[in-house]
Design a protein around this nucleic acid. Structure first.
Lengths: 227, 227
DNA sequence: GGCTGATTGATATATGTCAATTATTACTTC
DNA sequence: GAAGTAATAATTGACATATATCAATCAGCC
């Protein structure tokens, strides 16, 4: 139970910072700590939102399961992320699936307790509102990006996202399949592979089995901007 | 100033219902009532969010201006809608443009006052959070729809949306250009026109200059489901 | 040594682009 | 107010291209 002291204060722009000890204890008393292996489903779309989840460690993908078995990976989440699955606040249905890419340690917290706190702590509600709004804007970005850019631009975006927001290192080791990269970029895996090859031939990136290195970020940004 | 008594209580699932008279007065004191003509921009993407807007009467489109001058119309809004433009809560930048389709009467309300209320009234923050979350889910729906369906499915979705959520009547008179329909459906106007023709030839819809009638909604739903 | 995932190639198809034509609206001018 | 003219939007057709699909081969791995 003491883990939250280390974990939550750093979580997602300090949403929980405004909670006093009593509130925090209330939220945490019946939390459950769970470890998932790579590939396991942490929360599943269309189930009901009895709990929300805090990721303590590891990397997971957030995906929406669409029509004809096609998925869209909306983002990756890692340490200290808060997952409300879209419906915790409004309709009690989870609107996307979260699934572990590496081993993931996380806490399941009763969402009723969240609601109780929200209704009595306006600062907390305000912080969550801000967080929620940010997610909204991310979603809007994704919508525009996937809808209005050609494949090279989308691939560039995915690579820049991985380097700058997920792995924070330049040659980065990845744990995703080409299929998953493709689902992040809104295309088929074959198309993703072909576009990566293009970038490699142009000397903009270098790739080996599990590693990608971005040789010219400015070029990549140019491709991203051109759409 | 007395207009709010009639207007706001009906607004967007009663977000404002939880405000007492004092709070309501505080929010409303420096509001400004504005009338826009068809085609005029009510709020503009990338400007700063000094105010949020309540639509009192009329029909407006909410659009995100994307790359290469391409737009995506996210939704239409009408009487008693609340417009926070995406950034009122988080980053003070408007993330989409709202523009009048018919004559629109609306109120501009100082967003600082919204923030003050949010920080002292947890119920209000909670209601706004719920509202915001709903918008989030709408956006997710749009993302999936525009990304994973073929044109016929997207056109069907647009028609069903117009009939069931905007005009609420079956032969409905529209004020939108074909370009705007296309921007709702994520395609070019030429493609939209061709798909409409298909539906007309198949006897599923009937269209004249400013009117569309859906002859077989079940067929349309089938097309929508098939993607 | 078989399994899964990655890669490549050939081909099909969805969708966009461009240009030409027609309809519609708006605006003048008599 | 009618008629004509310009401007704008709608429609159609021919064509280009982005992207998906399918099948085959290849590489890594329990």
């Amino acid at each position: 139970m003491t883990c939250c002291v280390h974990c939550l204060p750093k979580a997602e722009a300090s949403i929980f910072e405004c909670l006093n000890k009593e509130d925090m204890d209330y939220l945490m008393t019946c939390k459950r700590n769970v470890i998932f292996n790579p590939g396991e489903t942490i929360i599943k779309q269309n189930t009901s939102t009895t709990h929300f989840v805090c990721i303590k460690d590891g990397l997971a993908k957030v995906l929406a399961e669409g029509h004809n078995g096609k998925n869209v990976i909306l983002k990756l989440i890692s340490t200290h992320s808060l997952v409300t699955a879209g419906g915790v606040i409004s309709d009690d249905i989870r609107h996307f699936t979260v699934s572990a890419l590496t081993q993931v340690e996380c806490c399941f917290i009763d969402s009723n307790r969240l609601h109780v706190l929200l209704s009595r702590n306006s600062r907390f509600a305000y912080e969550l509102l801000k967080y929620n709004n940010k997610q909204n804007l991310q979603m809007l970005d994704s919508l525009i990006r996937l809808n209005q850019k050609y494949m090279p631009g989308r691939v560039a975006d995915t690579l820049l996202y991985l380097k700058n927001e997920i792995y924070n290192s330049n040659p980065f080791n990845y744990k995703l399949s080409k299929q998953e990269f493709a689902e992040m970029s809104g295309m088929t895996k074959e198309s993703f592979i072909r576009n990566m090859k293009e970038l490699e031939v142009s000397g903009i990136i270098k790739q080996s089995r599990n590693e990608i290195e971005i040789l010219s970020e400015p070029e990549l940004i140019k491709i991203s901007k051109n759409g």
